[in-house]
Amino acid sequence: MLAPTLLLLLLLAVYPLLYALYLSMTSTQVGTPGRFVGLANFVRLPQTQIFALTLWNTVWYTVAAVAAKLVLGLALALVLAQRAPGMRWIRGAVLVPWVAPISLSVLAWTWMFDLSFSVINWVLMHLHLVPGPIAWLGAPRLARCAVVLVNVWSGLPFFGITFLAGLVTVPQELYEAATVDGVGAMGRFWAITLPLLRPVLATVLLFSLVMTSSDFATVFVLTHGGPMNTTQLLATLAFKLGLATGDLGNAAAISLYLFPALACMTYVQARLMRRAWQW
């Protein structure tokens, strides 16, 4: 009964992956079959300005967004773990960004960052925090922060709720014993919560590194990679090159550039999961 699933995955996941590997080693353009060029695409790409910038953007985006989600996610989980009437609905509310279609909710952020009608600018200006409107998506540094902010917004629920599930498994007796021994709240967090959350932290971290570094919708909808490619990610550049220009060889090489790193993370993740399975 595994056969249909295996067949599906071989045809629609393994074969496309191998095909992408093959394409990335050719000079294929749409309509013209390419020559085999070996690793030439991978060697030449980092020497082009746009790719070097994109690779750097992707690394920066991933590290910044994952770090923010990790810290805020822990804070969120600690808040959600408190008991109060209606907590179930609060948990539900913070999960909504995760459940809503990302391309559509990023559209709302695009409007909230609008140059003329940004509600964020209106609030900041009326609180007299800034003198005039801020071009959130028009200046490189701000645009980079904006895309990270939106990614954190959409990814935070997953972090928060998974950490919460981890928190619930920590035996309450440990906290009680520590409290009796006179350990403060911070001490209990560092000595009990964090170490016992480590497996969950590691799983979520690796999962998010893979998903954030391959993000597409956030940047595609919010900035289209601009201004001047300063928010371009590997996935959006590959999309642009592959579909607009038809340069399939280079596009495949771009989308596969982080593949070795992702494969290592996936391997570690699979090992972690297997250990979790045996518990």
């Binding site: 074969y15 992956l17 992408a20 394409l23 893979v210 998903m211 391959s214 996935a235 999309f239 992702l262």
Partner: peptide, 10 residues
């Protein structure tokens, strides 16, 4: 764990 952005072109 294989992201869809890796596979859309092929």
């Amino acid at each position: 764990l294989m992201p869809t952005t890796l596979l859309f072109l092929p």
